[in-house]
Write a protein that binds this DNA or RNA. Structure first.
Lengths: 203, 203
DNA sequence: CGCTATCAATCAATCATTTGATTGAGAAAA
DNA sequence: TTTTCTCAATCAAATGATTGATTGATAGCG
């Protein structure tokens, strides 16, 4: 009302709203699971009215897809944070483990929400379309590393790269769970022992 | 009405009902997830009225606990099916893999429901109380096998038994997922290569 | 043996609340 | 002014659960 007051924009843009909505939904999925996810709770967490939520995201289904896309985007951004060019296979593997540690530290809910959405992807093709390629990408990174490591002599030569990649991603994901969190470091160490070639072990 | 008709019991006992209810709920959890689990759907699947379901199981919460207990009991029964006495560590490990194959073949939904309940156990102490000991038991079996195998020279001597057990159970659970099912055998083979000592490899 | 009382189990109808979503008016921003 | 965004109120259906009447099964008694 005061004419001297600077015109400060008060409203978030549509994109900002959707980011906030996805954030709130992710937090709530961790707290209550998919089965306890309620659109009203999300709206309240963001600080908007339920109708506003529907204005920005047309349905609950679309909201879950937004969450999936948000996970994918964060995961991608994380993956691009630490380029791997110039690193040998052993160092690359260790960098992947460090990245996982960072995810656990900075985005603790990411793996947990991912786990719920991976389950959901069995039943929902729309979610599968977003989540499975992302999971495949993560697994594929390890597959590449193992392939390289076999060639350069860092890793046990009889490794099946694709199978080993599944072993690693599954083990890491499992250690995201709170009751398994204390096991993360021993499991990472065990994975290294399992795959590095003892003769050329650089640890 | 017919006096010659044998007196055939028409009603199932309470225990039988609860078993049927747990079965139906398990199937529906796989089809629709925990988030899509509805008491009316369960009642319909069993062939009883919703009030009858509540007669036998007082609340939805109690129903999920019943499912958890049902999983635990089936898992136990499966574990007792193949005694491991007299087997060396390598054979024991292979037997565990065979048991997992049997579970996948005979009770395909068991691991999937377990996965959803493990997630839920983070949020629900009642479920945690049933599920986590069972999961710990499964992991513990592998821990014991690894310990034995290190001592008898079957396995790589620098294995951390507890960590290796987590790696194995996580990898097996991951391969339960339909899009990962084709990877089960290569992953099992990779696990064997990772843990068996090459020198005394009996494969 | 037949009848009765009792208890367990079942059901249709209903309840109270929740849930995803919509409507129409008004506010904010461009 | 027009467009975008927000809100309170509301809708229609779903949801977990309850109620009261009825049915089925069985034990006990004459």
């Amino acid at each position: 009302m005061c004419p001297e007051q600077a015109p400060i924009p008060k409203r978030e843009s549509g994109d900002e709203r959707r980011i906030a909505i996805a954030r709130a939904a992710r937090a709530l999925i961790i707290e209550k699971g998919l089965e306890g996810l309620r659109t009203r709770d999300i709206a309240e967490r963001v600080g908007i009215n339920i109708a506003t939520l529907h204005y920005h995201v047309p349905s609950k289904e679309a909201l879950v897809a937004l969450v999936a896309a948000s996970l994918r985007d964060d995961f991608k951004a994380q993956a691009l944070r630490h380029p791997k060019e110039g690193l040998d296979a052993g160092a690359q593997l260790r960098q992947e483990f460090n990245e996982f540690r960072e995810i656990v530290a900075e985005m603790p809910e990411l793996i947990g929400v991912l786990s719920e959405l991976v389950d959901l992807s069995r039943r929902d093709p729309t979610i599968a379309e977003i989540i499975l390629p992302m999971q495949a990408y993560w697994t594929g990174q390890f597959t590449k590393i193992f392939r390289t490591g076999i060639e350069d002599g860092s890793f046990r030569p009889n490794i099946d790269p694709a199978a080993a990649a599944i072993v690693v991603t599954a083990a890491l994901s499992d250690c995201w769970r709170p009751h398994r969190r204390p096991s993360l470091e021993p499991v990472i160490a065990e994975l290294e022992r399992a795959f590095f070639l003892p003769v050329s072990n650089q640890g």
